[in-house]
C-alpha cells in the first residue's frame, strides 16, 4: 500500500528537477572578486522524467556545457537546487554529490588518461567509490567492455592506442560502470564519421532501453536530435527559453531562438551542392 503510494509519487515526481540554477564566473581574488565577468547560467528551471531523452540545444555560449558540468558535479553552482527522484543533491568537493548522474565529455581522447589501460579507465569509478576488490572491479569492467563491443583482450592496451570510436565506447563504459540513472552526453557523437556515428547512436539507444536510462543530450546536430531525443529544450544566454516534445518543436518552434536554430539547420541542408 505504502509502496504503491510511493511509486505513484515517484511517477509524478520527475527524475531530475532543477530549480533556479545559477552560475557566474568572476575574476580577481579576495576583495576584488566582485568583478563580474560572465554569467553562463541565469536561473535554469528544468524537469526531466524517467526514461526521457532531453536534448539541450542552443547557440554556442548559451550555457549548455556549464549546465552539464553543474549537474555532473564538476562545478559548484552559485545558487539553485537539483532534485533527483525527490531527493536534493548538493555539490561538495569530495562526496559523490552528483548522485546517479554521469557525463560523457566532448572529446573522449582528452577525457581518458593516456597513461591508463582500458581496464583501468573503465574500472576507475569503481575504484573511486571503493566498490569490490581489484579482481571484482576488473571482472565487471571487462564484462561491460565486451557488451559495448570492445574485445576483452583490449583491456591491457593504453588509451592512446584506441581509435576515436573505441575511445567513445571506453568513455561510455566508464560512465555506465556505476549504473547511473541519468547520463549526460555532451556532444558525444560529434567528430565521428557517419557510420561510426550511426553505430554509436544505435548502441546508445539499445543501452537506454536495456538499462532504463534517462539521457540528457547536448548537441548542435538537429538531425541527430530529431532521431534520438524525445524532448527538446532551447537555451539562450543562460536561460531555457523553450521546451517542447520533439515532434511538436520540429513542427514549429515558438521561441525566436528556436526558430533561428531550425532555420539555420534548414538553410544548411537546402543549400545547393556546388
Amino acid at each position: 500500500m505504502n509502496d504503491q503510494a510511493q511509486t505513484q509519487a515517484e511517477s509524478r515526481e520527475p527524475l531530475l528537477r532543477v530549480v533556479n540554477l545559477q552560475k557566474r564566473y568572476s575574476r580577481g581574488r579576495g576583495w576584488r572578486r566582485s568583478r563580474l565577468l560572465i554569467e553562463p547560467l541565469r536561473g535554469i528551471d528544468l524537469q526531466v522524467h524517467a526514461g526521457a531523452s532531453l536534448a539541450l540545444i542552443g547557440a554556442s555560449g548559451s550555457g549548455k556545457s556549464t549546465l552539464a558540468r553543474c549537474l555532473a558535479g564538476i562545478e559548484r553552482p552559485d545558487c539553485g537546487e537539483v532534485w533527483i527522484s525527490g531527493r536534493q543533491s548538493g555539490y561538495s568537493e569530495n562526496a559523490h554529490a552528483s548522485g546517479p548522474i554521469y557525463m560523457i565529455f566532448q572529446d573522449c581522447g582528452l577525457s581518458t588518461n593516456p597513461r591508463f589501460t582500458a581496464a583501468e579507465i573503465v574500472s576507475e569509478p569503481l575504484l573511486i567509490s571503493n566498490w569490490g576488490t581489484t579482481r571484482e572491479r576488473l571482472h565487471r569492467a571487462i564484462g561491460l567492455m565486451t557488451t559495448l563491443g570492445l574485445q576483452a583482450d583490449a583491456a591491457n592496451r593504453r588509451a592512446g592506442e584506441f581509435s576515436g570510436g573505441q575511445r567513445r565506447r571506453l568513455a561510455l563504459a566508464r560512465a555506465l560502470v556505476l549504473e547511473p540513472r541519468i547520463l549526460i552526453l555532451d556532444e558525444a557523437l560529434a567528430g565521428l564519421d557517419l557510420s561510426t556515428q550511426a553505430q554509436m547512436a544505435n548502441l546508445l539507444l539499445e543501452i537506454q532501453r536495456a538499462r532504463a536510462l534517462t539521457y540528457l543530450w547536448i548537441s548542435h546536430d538537429l538531425t541527430l536530435v530529431a532521431r534520438l531525443a524525445s524532448d527538446i529544450a532551447v537555451m539562450d544566454q543562460g536561460r531555457i527559453v523553450e521546451s517542447a516534445p520533439v515532434r511538436e518543436w520540429f513542427a514549429g518552434p515558438r521561441s525566436p531562438q528556436g526558430q533561428s536554430l531550425l532555420q539555420a539547420a534548414g538553410a544548411w541542408r537546402s543549400r545547393p551542392a556546388s
Binding site: 558535479g73 568537493e93 569530495n94 559523490h96 557525463m103 581518458t112 576507475e124 569509478p125
Partner: peptide, 17 residues
C-alpha cells in the same frame, strides 16, 4: 584542468586521489 581529471572528479574522486 585536463578532461580526465574533471571526469574522475565527476565520479566523486577526492583531491588526494
Amino acid at each position: 584542468h585536463r578532461e580526465y581529471v574533471l571526469a574522475a572528479r565527476s565520479f566523486g574522486a577526492s583531491n588526494f586521489y
